[in-house]
Simulated assay, not measured.
Amino acid sequence: MTAAGTRLDHADTATRFGRSELRLGHADVLAAAGRIAPYIRRTPLLTAGSLPRVLLKAEHLQHSGSFKLRGAANALLALGAREIVTGSSGNHGLAVAALAGPLGVAVTVVMAAGASEAKARAVAALGARVIRTGGGVAERDRYARDFATRTGAVLVPSSDHELVVAGQGTVGLEIFEDAPGTGTVFVPTGGGGLLGGVCLAAAGLTRPVRIVGVEPADTRRYARSLAAGHPVELPPSDTVADGLRGQRAGEVLFPVIRQRVDELVGVTDEAIVHATGLLHEAGIPAEPSGAVALAGALQHGFDGTAAVIVSGGNGPAALAARTSAG
């Protein structure tokens, strides 16, 4: 491992770990695409003159403001639960809350103390119950699991759940359908649901494509877990990318990412802020978490054409506008 990136040898990982641990496949993403189609927006691939050979997958234009709607929709529709609980830094909670009303589902969203207050208010404005906890993301998720056990609510994690991962994978399906010549996909990586989903989507391709996960430099849970050979838990962090503060690699996601991701790179907060500014100058109002993949592409470089996932646009102004409109 280097400070900048972790290259993965798939032949070696397949030999050491086999494929028996995988619980998901390309078919799960295809099933999710059919299930969630009436509830999501097929987002475009945008270009910017200042970013040559880069295609920007505009998930900031998704209903609820981020890609999280895809996984939330797949889980809620497939599970059919009447009451759910989830832990969220904000965007997953917004997605679940936005769907819950029309589907008649009661929702409790557990948010860590350091989570965005603007996102917490927006989640509550959608009718969800919001519970704030101390500590970081790991403590938040433990509280949500305990809440599910105590109340009988169904737990829908923000990332580490088969249905959530399959739903997030539809981002990758759309990229590969709309831009079949894409050579590299840069994926922002926090809990890992989007990265794992794109890996599953790529499993259906007959041509090679590189998948690069991009983590904030101080929260490299997947790079460190791959180095250790098992999921590890990191201390809480305060990266500017507030949606990517997860502390532990997912049990469902770890084998998917271990066997398919080509490289993991880390980017500093300064690089993330720079990438956010470039997107804003191009008329794309990404939040910092949504600019992490671009920061990785700028730092890492690539051959040919790259797709960069702009994963969300739930900055303070967008949240305020959505709340007042609602």
Rank of each mutant, 00 (worst) to 15 (best):
Ile175Leu: 09
Gly250Asp: 01
Leu173Asn: 05
Val209Gln: 10
Arg224Ser: 14
Pro208Asn: 01
Gly229Arg: 09
Gly172Asn: 06
Leu234Glu: 09
Pro216Ile: 07
Pro235Cys: 13
Thr182Pro: 00
Gly243Pro: 05
Thr182Ser: 00
Val256Ser: 00
Arg258Gly: 05
Ala217Trp: 11
Arg245Trp: 08
Gly183Ala: 14
Pro216Tyr: 08
Pro235His: 12
Gly193Leu: 03
Thr239Asn: 08
Arg207Ser: 15
Ala223Thr: 14
Ser225His: 07
Thr184Cys: 07
Arg258Val: 10
Gly229Ser: 13
Glu251His: 13
Ala203Cys: 07
Ala249His: 02
Ala241Ser: 13
Val261Leu: 12
Val232Lys: 02
Ile257Pro: 02
Gly190Leu: 06
Asp262His: 14
Gly243Val: 11
Asp262Phe: 04
Asp178Arg: 13
Gly183Tyr: 00
Ile211Lys: 06
Gly192Asp: 03
Thr206Val: 12
Arg260Cys: 03
Leu234Cys: 07
Gly181Gln: 12
Val214Glu: 04
Pro180Met: 11
Ala202Ser: 15
Pro216Gln: 07
Gly190Tyr: 03
Gly192Gln: 02
Arg207His: 14
Glu215Trp: 06
Ile211Gly: 03
Arg221Asp: 12
Phe176Asn: 06
Ala179Ser: 10
Asp238Tyr: 04
Pro255Cys: 09
Val185Ala: 08
Gly190Phe: 02
Asp178Thr: 13
Gly183Asn: 00
Arg224Trp: 07
Phe254Leu: 08
Val185Met: 09
Ala227Leu: 13
Cys199Glu: 01
Leu226Arg: 06
Gly196Trp: 01
Phe176Met: 13
Thr239Phe: 07
Ile175Gln: 05
Ala217Asp: 14
Ala203Arg: 12
Leu244Lys: 09
Gly183Thr: 11
Cys199Leu: 05
Gly193Cys: 12
Asp242Lys: 03
Ala241Asp: 11
Glu174Gly: 05
Gly229Met: 09
Arg260Asp: 02
Arg221Ala: 15
Gly196Ser: 12
Gly181Val: 04
Leu244Ala: 10
Ala201Asp: 10
Val185Thr: 08
